[in-house]
Structure formats: C-alpha cells, structure tokens
Design a protein around this nucleic acid. Structure first.
Lengths: 225, 225
DNA sequence: AATAAAATATGATTTTTGTCAGGTTTTTTT
DNA sequence: AAAAAAACCTGACAAAAATCATATTTTATT
C-alpha cells in the first residue's frame, strides 16, 4: 500500500469499505499538493470538484459571519478530509479552508469517488456514518457556544487541542495558533481572547513562549466555573 | 399511495429513491402514534430503533448543557424526521425530542429501512444529501450563535419561523412557543428573551396576544443592527 | 368562580464581554 | 542590523447580558 492510501484509510474510515481494486484506483489518481502557512486552500462559495486529504500539517475550516468576522468551525489534521460535502451535493462549499502551517495534501477528484459512492452501498453507508458523527459534534459545539462563557470555551478549546492533537517534546500544544485564531474559534473579540489567556497565565494555569502555549494545570481548566 | 407514504416522501426526499415496492413495505409497517403537548418523544441517551416521521404538530430537538439549561438545536414540523442518526449508528441519541403541541407521528422501525439502506445505493446517497444539508445548516447556526448578539438572534428566529412555518389566519406565527423556548433557541436567559420581545413590542416591530406573536415590521427585524 | 400554579413582565444591580486607544514585543522584510 | 509590519498586551470605558427580586398576568386546577 502506498503511503497516501494508508493515510486516507487511517482516519477517514469510510474508505475502509472500498475493495482493494477500488482503493488502488482512487489512490492512483490522487494529486499531492503543498500549501504554505496561511495559504487559502479553498474559499467559501467555490465549487469543489473533489476532496483533500491531509497528509501533514493543520488547517482551519472557517465561515464568514455577516459582521465580517471569521468563525472557525473545525480544525483538521493528518488523515482528515476537506470538502466531504462536495461529494454529495453540487452546491458551492459553505466553508473556507486555510493552512495554519505548512501542509501536504492529497487531492482526490470527485469523479473517481463518485463511482464507488453510487455502486458500493457499504462505502456510502460508511461516509454516512462519518457525516452523522460530524453532525453530532456540531450539535455539541452549538450548545457550548450558546450556553458557556467565553472563559469556559477558551478552557475547553485548550483541552481539546491538548487531548486531540497532543504536545511537542517541551510539553507545548503541538498546534500553534495566533490569538486571533483562538478568538475566532471561541467566538469572541481578539482582545478578550488575549485577556483570558493572560489571566490563565497569571493564575499559572498555562504558560507561554511566544505563540506557543503549555498547559500547566489541566485540572483547573477542567473544573473552571 | 397512503397518506403516510406521501407524508414521508414529501419532505424527507431521501425516501423518494425507494422503489414503489420498497416504499409500500416501509409504509406498511409504520406505527401511528399520538403525542400530547409537552410529551417527551425520546430523551438524550436513549437508544432509538427507528425514525419518527412527523404527520402533524411541531417538536423541538434539544440538548442539555452542562450548566443544566436545555438548548434547542432544531425545530421539526410536518414531514420532518426524528432520529435519522439512529439509522446510521448504534450510538445513543444525542438529542431529546419534545412535542410543542399535540402531534401525530409515524414510527418506522430501523430494521425495515436498514435493508434498503444497505442495498439501494441511490437511497443511501439521498440520505447522505439530507445529512450534508443538516451539517451545512449546523455550521450556519454555530456562526450565528458565536458572532451575533442575542437581539439579532431573536430577530432571526422570528423571521425563520415566519418564513418556514408561516402564519395563521390572523397573521400570528403559526408556531407558538413559550418565552422560555425562545430563550432556549436563542441561547440566553429567559428574562433576557422576554426583555427583548418586550422591546420589539414597544418599537412596534411585533405585537402579541398571549403567547402568540405577530410580526408587524419584518423590515426592521431584517435590518436590525 | 376561586384558588393555585405557571408564565410573563420589569426594575435594580452585577458580571461579562466588546470597543477604542495606546502601548510593547515579536516577526518579517529590506 | 535596521526598519517596517504584524502580533500581542493592557487600561479605561461602554455596551450587552445575566442574575436576583418582585410584580402582574395568564392558565390550569379544584
């Protein structure tokens, strides 16, 4: 198995239902692409004709609000897929994708996958499962956004990043975000995000080194009112 | 075609891909149920073994937040389906469903649909499409919740109900919600919801009669800062 | 119809969050 | 290495929203 195959398979378990031949074919027509930090992979309103699979690096999926502020909807890392919706609908994408650091991605044209999607019910069912999971996560996010304070939301995104994407050798969160990104995930003003992180620092809940953040007291984050 | 068939078909267009025979079979094993206003149809954490299709009435899908407040995630009316996710995953439902007025529903056991879902790729593909649409709506809601003021969100839910569920003969919104429900949709305190609606009344943007609300000045709602 | 209960309403106050304005530090470019 | 740009930080204040307390109205129950 090529490296890309295993990459897609690992996280997007929908692809695990493809037969060996199907998988080989999909894998064969992939196109590797490199995106530099800050690069826009696609933008809200574009028509996507395939999915991107993340081989390395991290990107954010954002949506522009009417007030002109970007809202981060999701972070996507190694093995994650961008543009899933494009497989299913002809509609333009509702999200933008921006690389948060240098990224390697595979692009798989829609045409290659559609055939399997139409003929292999098990495969379609598995795609359905991942989408149902996304939907559940989305409900969760909505409730968090609606019912929790900015401070609580900040605490949770720190723990989320810690738990899902891990830390580097020095114990710093392995995903490095700007304060503006934090604000845009939590859904608050940049100054408010900065202020809260400063407060956490004062209370020795986190420490920082430039943009990098280390969680010093997970317990306090978890049980913060 | 029986009444129920056409009901399911009308809104859940996923079912339109079923063959005539498949549809007849599904339709045959449905169970009609009545739920009174306030009745809990199912609760977060329950295992669902089928989907409910709304024949008449309205219900809310809610999720409990850690702070103990319910958040309304979605309103479902005639033709809408509850428990879609249960078709796809073995997991317990992440939402509760509560009737907002008297409701008539059809229950279709999972076992009946699963067969079609596994064998009819076009059907599965259509379910996939509705789920992708749900996901898009969900992204939209998240951004609204994160970036807009409570007042703006209240204005939007009023317009949403007006546009999607219409008005009665007197011009009042045909879905009648308690102030607490409004608060729980908008994601705010009940008092805040009441206060904002009172303010709209003072500004002659809406008028009320008991719980019922009539939009008097749609334009003001739309262009409210 | 009287009573009780629930929902709605409003004032007063506090807490949270946003905005503006001015800094400093870090990063990038020249 | 210097200059410019971007990101970060903090204070002061304003605005938004939550909370608490207490009426009033509506709805349900006896």
């Amino acid at each position: 198995m090529s490296k890309c195959e295993s990459c897609i398979v690992r996280e997007f378990n929908a692809l695990k239902s493809l037969t060996r031949e199907e998988l080989m074919r999909v894998s064969a027509c992939k196109t590797a692409k490199i995106f530099r930090k800050g690069h826009v992979i696609f933008e809200e309103g574009e028509t996507l004709n395939g999915v991107y699979c993340v081989k390395s690096g991290v990107c954010k999926l954002t949506k522009m609000s009417e007030n002109g502020k970007d809202q981060v909807v999701k972070l996507v890392v190694k093995g994650g897929l961008l543009g899933k919706r494009s497989l299913v609908t002809e509609q333009k994408t509702n999200l933008s994708a921006v690389a948060l650091n240098d990224m390697e991605m595979c692009f798989v044209p829609k045409s290659e996958i559609m055939d399997d999607l139409n003929k292999n019910p098990k495969f379609t069912m598995d795609v359905l499962k991942t989408m149902a999971e996304d939907l559940k996560d989305s409900d969760e996010s909505l409730v968090n956004m609606a019912q929790k304070s900015v401070k609580r939301r900040m605490a949770e995104i720190l723990m989320y990043i810690h738990d899902n994407f891990g830390t580097d050798d020095d114990g710093y969160l392995s995903i490095v975000l700007s304060r503006e990104d934090y604000a845009s995930i939590v859904g608050t003003a940049t100054e408010s995000a900065i202020r809260i992180l400063s407060q956490f620092k004062k209370e020795d809940i986190i420490s920082t080194s430039g943009k990098r953040i280390k969680i010093e007291d997970y317990h306090s984050l978890k049980w913060m009112e």
